[in-house]
């Protein structure tokens, strides 16, 4: 071991602010990037669900224009077979 005490390690020979300022900010920003990427994944899944809902509504409107424009609430379920 090259350090004789914990305080010697953290002080980095008087350069602690510079060394830990470099390592700390790098670690923090990379952690932030990981969190943002995880959040982006949820956003992407939301976007796909919204696209699917829009497609289902379009398909309903084509099949049954009267019902879909009359404002009655109907259960819309996703049916992949109907989309293709």
């Amino acid at each position: 071991m090259i350090w004789s005490s914990a305080s010697e390690f953290w002080s980095m020979g008087g350069y602690g602010v510079y060394v830990w300022g470099s390592m700390g900010v790098s670690a923090a920003l990379m952690a932030l990037e990981v969190m943002l990427t995880r959040w982006g994944r949820q956003q992407a899944l939301d976007a796909v669900c919204e696209a699917m809902e829009a497609q289902t509504l379009d398909a309903e409107a084509v099949r049954d224009p009267v019902a879909s424009s009359s404002g009655t609430t109907r259960q819309t379920t996703f049916n992949p077979g109907a989309v293709t």
Binding site: T37, G40, R41, Q42, Q43, A44, L45, D46, A47, V48, C49, E50, A51, M52, Q55, F78, P80, V83, T84
Partner: peptide, 23 residues
């Protein structure tokens, strides 16, 4: 994530298990 958004109208994306679970 970029692929999911770009291809969100494609059937293969909509049939992914993670998309179904999210739905």
């Amino acid at each position: 994530s970029l692929i999911l958004v770009r291809e969100s109208h494609a059937l293969w994306v909509q049939l992914l298990p993670e998309v179904q679970a999210h739905r």
